[in-house]
Nucleic acid binder design. Structure first.
Length: 148
DNA sequence: GCCAACGTTGGC
DNA sequence: GCCAACGTTGGC
C-alpha cells in the first residue's frame, strides 16, 4: 500500500467541495505534468492520501481514497493526460501547515518540503504516520487498515 | 505581487 | 539532442 498527496488551490477545488462529492468522489482532473500523471497511473484502488491546500491555507487538511483507477482526463483534449478518481474520507482535526512540516525533522525529506511544485506526489509510510499524528488522527483509521 | 524553481517547447 | 526562451506553479 502506498500513500499519496494531492494538491489543490482551495479557490479552484477545496476539500469542502471534495467532501460534497460524497462516496462516489470525482476525477482528479487537470493535471498536466508527466511525473504527477505517472504517480496516478501507479495508484491502486483503496490507497489513501492527503489532501493539501496550496497557496491559500498551505496545509494538509484531509484524507482521501483512490476510488477509480487512472483513465483519460475528461478535461484534456490530449489523451495522454490521465487521472484517477478520489473521494474524501475524513478531515484532519488539526490541519498540518506547511511551515510545521518544514520544521519537523521526520518530514525533512518529504516531497512537499523538497519539491513544492509537484501536484501529485508519493508520501512515505513514516511521513504518513507522522502527519496523521500531528493532525490528530489515528494512523490506522486514516490509512484504512484499522478496525472499523 | 514578486520571484525562484521547475517543466515544456521549439529552433538549430 | 542541446539549450534558450517561455509559461506556470506556489511560497513568501
Amino acid at each position: 500500500m502506498a500513500f499519496w498527496l494531492f494538491k489543490s488551490e482551495p479557490f479552484k477545488w477545496s476539500f469542502e467541495q471534495q467532501k460534497a462529492c460524497g462516496a462516489d468522489g470525482t476525477e482528479w482532473s487537470g493535471v498536466r505534468n508527466y511525473q504527477a500523471r505517472n504517480f496516478m497511473r501507479a495508484m491502486v484502488l483503496g490507497e489513501r492520501g492527503f489532501f493539501y491546500h496550496s497557496n491559500e491555507g498551505k496545509a494538509v487538511v484531509g484524507i482521501v481514497e483512490v476510488c477509480g483507477l487512472a483513465h483519460p482526463d475528461s478535461t484534456a483534449d490530449d489523451p495522454r493526460w490521465e487521472c484517477v478518481d478520489i473521494r474524501a474520507v475524513m478531515d484532519l482535526p488539526n490541519p498540518v501547515a506547511l511551515d510545521v512540516c518544514k520544521s519537523e525533522p521526520r518530514l525533512k525529506d518529504m516531497v512537499l518540503v523538497t519539491n513544492s511544485r509537484l501536484s501529485v506526489q508519493p508520501v512515505g509510510e513514516a511521513e504518513f504516520a507522522a502527519i496523521c499524528e500531528m493532525g490528530g488522527l489515528d494512523v490506522a483509521a486514516a490509512a484504512g487498515t484499522g478496525k472499523r
